[in-house]
Nucleic acid binder design. Sequence first.
DNA 1: CCGACTTTGTGCATGCGTTCACAAGCGGTA
DNA 2: TACCGCTTGTGAACGCATGCACAAAGTCGG
Lengths: 251, 251
Amino acid sequence: MAAQRGEGETTTTPAEPADRERARAIPEAAVARLAVYLRVLSGMADQGVTAVSSEELSQAAGVNAAKLRKDLSYIGSYGTRGVGYDVEVLVSHIERILGLTRNHSVAVVGIGNLGHALANYGGFPGRGFPVTALFDVDADLIGIPVGGIPVNHIDEITAICLEREVSIGVIATPPPAAQSVCDRLVSAGVQCILNFAPVVLQVPDNVEVRKVDLAVEMQILSFHVARRADEAASVSVGNNGLGVDGMVIRP
Amino acid sequence: MAAQRGEGETTTTPAEPADRERARAIPEAAVARLAVYLRVLSGMADQGVTAVSSEELSQAAGVNAAKLRKDLSYIGSYGTRGVGYDVEVLVSHIERILGLTRNHSVAVVGIGNLGHALANYGGFPGRGFPVTALFDVDADLIGIPVGGIPVNHIDEITAICLEREVSIGVIATPPPAAQSVCDRLVSAGVQCILNFAPVVLQVPDNVEVRKVDLAVEMQILSFHVARRADEAASVSVGNNGLGVDGMVIRP
DNA sequence: CCGACTTTGTGCATGCGTTCACAAGCGGTA
DNA sequence: TACCGCTTGTGAACGCATGCACAAAGTCGG
Ligand SMILES: NC(=O)c1ccc[n+]([C@@H]2O[C@H](COP(=O)([O-])OP(=O)(O)OC[C@H]3O[C@@H](n4cnc5c(N)ncnc54)[C@H](O)[C@@H]3O)[C@@H](O)[C@H]2O)c1
Ligand SMILES: NC(=O)c1ccc[n+]([C@@H]2O[C@H](COP(=O)([O-])OP(=O)(O)OC[C@H]3O[C@@H](n4cnc5c(N)ncnc54)[C@H](O)[C@@H]3O)[C@@H](O)[C@H]2O)c1
């Protein structure tokens, strides 16, 4: 029904887009990198580093220095030419842009293998994402605390999500249950969903979904292995127009 | 030192790139989607569906139909105009391109919360990614089977990875250990790494790294919440040039 | 106070990825 | 066989992202 990712209004309005909209138009790819810069900068701050140049930071973050500066320029001009950036200042501005000035309460649904790992993980609360609710259908799990939070029955999801102001829902159920869980989260007012189930979720336009699909990640790695193996083969054996598996490369 | 992602040879060779190289130049984004199509198609095949049109498949995969057809065109012309695609045929060709005609043995390093979940997960072997080795430093874990595989000490990593022909290494250790584990995997000949530790890994050019960073995913979601909240605020309150948190939108 | 040096911020070109739109091709039908 | 309707495959245009290269803007030493 609705696209997973908002498709943005095509030029139906001949009028200019408002400046404030353009100011907010930070490329999605840049947002992801800003989160990485933030982590690196936090680490530096913890080690007592107070200033950093774009060159140093870009090395630590594994990106091109020019790209880093462009990314930072989307959020403003907080560097000092000839010197670099103040670590604390940069941290606070990135946090502001990413909306980390307030906490985002997280609910995990499906307390199996993965749900347990997520609930027990200590890394989220410190980064502004306290896990405040756990849900499952398994009667044996209800009431048991995992990572300090008792598991509730999925039927209580609406009431509890509203009460605890959950803003991010994490789906860690088996694939067949994922869409139904997603629908319940959405009716409970949750507008952000992180989905671990290998399923394409259908959601309304106002809900943001991100997926983590480990099988897909592995298949991408597999593709690169195959490509490399194929290249090696065709180099050593000479280009006969056939790759491994009889794949026709030059028909 | 080396970039996380190969930067591709710049035009040092004035000669044309060989056709076979171009044939292999499937955009990274398309590869990721091909993996999704494969999953959807496999599900359809299981339900006895034998033919599918680009429109149907694109709906099920949550993408634009034109994009889907272009993605499929990278791997060849296996559709029938006026009819659609044969599900089995498409499955086998995508599998071939993704290098899934042979199994890729997986090693998991760091059998803590996350490592246990991964080792116990039944979804990988069926997709061609059997987990064949587990490693940790914790003496209490060594020898204990998890998901049917006994945990080995990290010091045995080289010998065991070579013996079991591990092609994908999964890092699920605490962040400080990640780089050292990565180096060990690389010296054991592993060329593909999936990294869960929130750390930027340094690897040689011939090694492919993909990272899964849940905190980053949540921060991206947080960004979108903040953007939406800000838009709503500036609409209801009128645009005064200030967003939430006193963020200056139009300086 | 000045000049040399350092590093930011960004205009611009280039390349990649997405989307549109339509000709080409195939099966079915008369 | 000839026509018709449907769906694929792709050329072309567009928009987004990347990386270069440099002017602007600051620091520091003398
Ligand atoms: N474990 C992994 O490493 C891993 C890796 C990749 C993908 N995944 C995916 O993550 C998801 C969870 O994996 P897992 O290994 O934790 O599975 P699991 O079977 O261990 O746990 C699933 C949990 O969800 C609960 N559940 C089932 N239906 C539910 C519903 N309608 N509402 C609420 N809870 C419900 C079950 O009771 C169970 O506790 C699956 O979709 C799986 O494909 C897991
Ligand atoms: N658990 C989660 O849900 C989650 C979420 C996001 C990120 N992560 C990341 O994933 C990684 C693992 O998380 P976790 O919760 O499983 O941690 P954990 O502490 O439960 O497990 C880490 C395991 O790694 C082992 N280990 C430590 N040093 C090692 C070494 N040098 N070689 C081999 N093994 C070693 C430890 O003995 C332990 O068993 C961390 O980097 C964490 O930041 C975890």
